[in-house]
């Protein structure tokens, strides 16, 4: 085990996979000379050269579409968005092309492509830069959506995503890059796509989250444990397809569910999970499911107000109290 930041873990994943397979390349704004706007790709240009670490103009639609075409021809592109919010400029290429061409061609073309970058709010950069687009992308039938919370998962899941033959939308947390954690060192360390993990075992209530929200839940847990509330905390890691079986086995024990997701509430991924749970596990539930998401307001610049709008420990605690009432 090595202690790495989330950023370093991602950097190792990129480096190892670039090393392993020379059809893998990284493309995006400032990924090369600058070392990545958030330094995730630092050092890679020197190691792999400008043929494989490709700086682009500020031209998201073109370089995203270019990566889609390269994938159709057999390469394995990793597209870095400096911020997932900027991917909105390239949505036609992401959704219509990366998302639909395999299907529309009757399955002839593979899309081994990873779209990745920081996502979410909380850094006071205004509504246009603070989207959590996980649910938007999870709405595309052919996409896999990943949102790791810890350095080890960031590394193991990014490696799995790069090795996947299907398009993966990989959401990193802008607020997570600096957090530290233990990361296995073996070169073939992979975290399987579609598998959640139990962070803390408990018996009173299941709290489900992913990415930065998992850390919000951890903060809430400090208070809840003082109140002697036993929380089974599940970190989803992969949002789509999500690990229904683990959620189900936890609910058989706790019979109560709170879902914490960053993103606007309407048609969020938590709504799908809540639907599935009430549909398939109706008899297991002792209380209505609660969701903690953003409030339905664009992210403001003001820091205090933004924290009020994002999922925060106070609202998680409130939801847990409500579900136990």
């Amino acid at each position: 085990m090595a202690t790495l930041t989330y950023r370093q873990a991602l950097n190792e994943a990129l480096s190892e996979e670039l090393e392993r397979d020379n059809t893998v390349f990284l493309i995006g704004e400032e990924v090369g000379e600058y070392g990545g706007a958030f330094k995730v790709s630092q050092g890679l240009l020197k190691k792999f050269g400008p043929e494989r670490i490709i700086d682009t103009p500020i031209s998201e639609a073109a370089f995203t579409g270019l990566a889609v075409g390269a994938a159709m021809y057999g390469l394995r592109p990793i597209v870095e968005f400096m911020n997932w919010s900027f991917a909105l400029v390239a949505f036609d290429q992401i959704i219509n092309n990366a998302g639909s061409i395999r299907f529309m061609s009757g399955g002839q073309f593979n899309f081994p492509i990873v779209f990745r970058g920081p996502s979410g709010g909380g850094t006071q950069i205004g509504a246009t830069h603070s989207h959590a687009l996980e649910n938007w992308l999870a709405n595309v039938p052919t996409f896999t959506v990943i949102n790791p919370a810890f350095p080890a998962d960031a590394k193991g899941l990014l490696k799995s995503a790069i090795r996947s033959n299907n398009p993966v939308c990989f959401f990193e947390g802008e607020r997570l890059y600096g957090i530290q954690g233990d990361v296995p060192e073996e070169k073939d360390f992979l975290v399987p796509i579609g598998k959640a993990q139990i962070v803390t075992e408990g018996k009173d209530v299941t709290v489900l989250s992913s990415g930065f929200s998992t850390h919000v839940v951890l903060q809430a847990l400090e208070t809840l444990s003082k109140e002697n509330i036993s929380v089974e905390m599940i970190d989803l890691r992969t949002i789509k397809p999500y690990d229904f079986d683990l959620v189900a086995s936890s609910l058989q024990k706790t019979n109560r569910l709170v879902i914490v997701e960053e993103g606007k509430p309407f048609a969020g991924w938590g709504a799908q999970i809540a639907y599935d749970v009430q549909h398939l596990l109706f008899d297991e539930l002792d209380a209505p499911i609660y969701r903690v998401s953003n409030l339905d307001i664009p992210n403001p610049y003001n820091g205090k107000l933004e924290q009020e709008i994002l999922p925060n420990p106070l609202r998680v605690i409130q939801a847990v109290h409500n579900v136990l009432r």
Binding site: F25, E51, A61, A62, F63, T64, G65, L66, A67, V68, G69, A70, A71, M72, Y73, G74, L75, Q93, N97
Partner: peptide, 13 residues
């Protein structure tokens, strides 16, 4: 841009 990507791959390979 897809065409550009195919051309990119042709040269890459």
């Amino acid at each position: 841009p897809i065409a550009a990507g195919v051309a990119f791959a042709q040269r890459y390979l």
